[in-house]
Simulated scan of single mutants.
Amino acid sequence: MRWLAVLLAVFLAGCVTSQGTKADMGRFVELEQVAAAGLPDQRLSIWLPPGYDSGTRRYPVLYMHDGHNLFDPAKSNFNKVWAADRAMLAAMASGKVQPHIIVGIWAPGADRYRQYLPQSIYDAAEGTPRAAMEAMTGGPVMSRAYLDWLAGPLKQRIDRDYRTQPGRESTTIMGSSMGGLMSCYAFLERPEVYGRAGCVSSHWPAADPRAVGEANPELIALWDGWFAARLGKPDGRRLWMDHGTATLDQYYAPYQQAIDARFAAQGWAEGKDYRSEVYEGAEHEENAWAQRLPEIFGWLLSER
């Protein structure tokens, strides 16, 4: 029945798009050259939901990596986007999800890999996985500084400048590929800040899969130990994970299966505390993520 839910969400988003006014679609705020300690200047694309400017209510906040690929094809890397605003409108129309503020954090160009590679995984890696990561870094890993900024100054700024619900149950972080790894990193390292996370097509090889090798046992053990040490009990938190089966996503299943087993071993209930989905034939690209984003929002952001 999952495909019916996805089709309904997309239909609802199309209805809003074709019939709504510009005000009904929400409003964007663009912030360029945002200073962040230890990082290149950052850029933000912020979406404020319909009704924000005419009311006094406070909103949950969804932070998303690769902000340039979320909303406007003209600003994207590949002329295709997640259509995160449309997916949010569809989730809102379903009645199951509160309107959210979406904060899109642009990736810093060539520094993206260094900014999204979890520092603790990089530090713990040895042998082939470490060599494969070293071949791609091109400089010091910056994800710890990025997380410090995300969970500290950036969140403080958003909570100060916008009418937010600042608690962890109302704060979600999401990304795909390396952004999926970064979202899991934030979720595990800052459980007091992020109550929900979406780790979409997470790039578990953490480097070129051809250099790591398929189902690398060292890397599988590294991820398992990483989650075992940090995951803890659900404690009201919620996590979405998924992958396709084509292009880069074809390499992810062995890692994801080990991680799923770890969640079960730690007492997380599938369907309640976490979900791990496989999309047959789905590729590693924005159109595939856009297609399933209404389903992700509908579960991850819904009120219990």
Score class of each variant (00 low, 15 high):
210 R>E: 14
180 G>N: 12
233 K>Q: 14
229 A>T: 07
228 A>G: 11
236 G>F: 05
209 P>A: 08
211 A>S: 14
198 G>Q: 07
190 R>F: 01
180 G>R: 08
216 N>H: 14
188 L>V: 08
187 F>R: 07
247 T>E: 12
202 S>A: 15
195 G>E: 10
229 A>I: 02
184 C>S: 15
211 A>M: 14
204 W>E: 05
244 G>E: 06
218 E>G: 07
232 G>Y: 08
195 G>Y: 06
207 A>D: 08
184 C>R: 00
183 S>Y: 02
254 P>S: 12
235 D>P: 00
219 L>R: 02
183 S>A: 15
223 W>G: 02
252 Y>R: 00
200 V>P: 01
204 W>S: 06
177 S>V: 08
213 G>I: 09
231 L>I: 09
243 H>T: 02
221 A>W: 03
227 F>H: 08
176 S>K: 08
225 G>K: 03
225 G>V: 03
194 Y>T: 06
209 P>D: 09
239 L>E: 05
192 E>P: 04
180 G>S: 10
215 A>S: 13
213 G>Q: 04
234 P>H: 10
181 L>V: 07
253 A>H: 07
228 A>I: 00
204 W>I: 07
193 V>F: 03
190 R>M: 03
203 H>W: 15
201 S>M: 02
176 S>G: 14
185 Y>G: 11
243 H>D: 01
176 S>H: 10
206 A>E: 01
